[in-house]
């Protein structure tokens, strides 16, 4: 048994808070890139949000995009260079609020790209405001009495939303809150990249992840929140696989 940090991850400590799931997702994406031998032909897109700095950690080409616009930028890169591998890495605000239009239209066009969507139900970098995926009753700095279905609507479910679009090839929702979930998440991410190599079209993996800081809990409690609350609101599984 061997377990080493992937080559596509630089040897530097991340800026993420203790117990944040981004580090795990970064590792999984990098492992997949390593295993498929894609490091030198991959172009990643960085979003706005906590993971805006992901180019500090991924040792491959990265382009930083305006808030919500990674699917549009990735579309152009992939169209211009069909032999390259392009992935988007977006948080919930980026993909499901300000960038919903870009998301839906890139997916609907069936762009042959891989999308990694990290859903932690909150705005991390700006300090814990409501995200489109914030759970009913969840307290944030802009829903101080908890999200109210009547005022803010229910949490937006990206996999369910995209499942009806013909251009979408593959949708799976996973989590990184237990080691077992992490192993499943890795398989899903690998498949999403393999689909791109096979020319299947738009593949998205939604990853339920922890934000202990803005949930104002300990890392252990954050894991429990994902396992008990988030998985109930956002059921895990494959939503589309053509």
């Amino acid at each position: 048994m061997q377990f080493k940090r992937p080559k596509t991850i630089k040897d530097t400590q991340t800026h993420y808070c203790p117990g944040c799931g981004h580090g795990i997702v970064h590792r999984l994406v990098a492992e997949v890139i390593d295993e498929l031998g894609l490091r030198e032909k991959t172009i990643g897109t960085a979003p706005v949000g906590c993971s805006v700095l992901l180019y500090n950690y991924f040792d491959c080409d990265i382009i930083e995009c305006a808030h919500g616009r990674p699917p549009a930028v990735a579309t152009a890169i992939k169209r211009c260079q069909p032999d390259k591998v392009v992935f988007t890495y977006q948080g919930d605000g980026d993909i499901a609020a300000i960038g919903t239009a870009e998301l839906i239209h890139a997916a609907n066009r069936g762009e042959n790209i891989t999308a990694i969507f990290v859903n932690n139900a909150i705005y991390g970098m700006t300090g814990g405001q409501m995200a489109p995926t914030t759970l009913i009753g969840q307290k944030t700095t802009t829903t101080q009495n908890g999200r109210d279905r009547k005022k803010q609507g229910p949490p937006l479910k990206v996999c369910e939303l995209l499942a009806s679009l013909e251009g979408v090839a593959y949708l799976q929702r996973v989590a990184v809150s237990t080691a077992k979930d992490v192993i499943i998440a890795k398989k899903a991410i690998k498949k999403a990249f393999q689909n791109q190599l096979d020319g299947k079209g738009y593949s998205l993996v939604e990853v339920l992840s922890m934000c202990p800081t803005d949930w104002k809990v300990t890392p252990k409690q954050a894991v429990d929140f994902v396992n008990n609350e988030m998985k109930a609101a956002f059921p895990l599984g494959v939503y589309k696989d053509v």
Partner: peptide, 14 residues
């Protein structure tokens, strides 16, 4: 829409 460094405005007003 949240953006630093004005987040206290929507937070306060929410």
């Amino acid at each position: 829409y949240p953006i630093t460094p004005q987040n206290e405005v929507p937070e306060y007003l929410s």
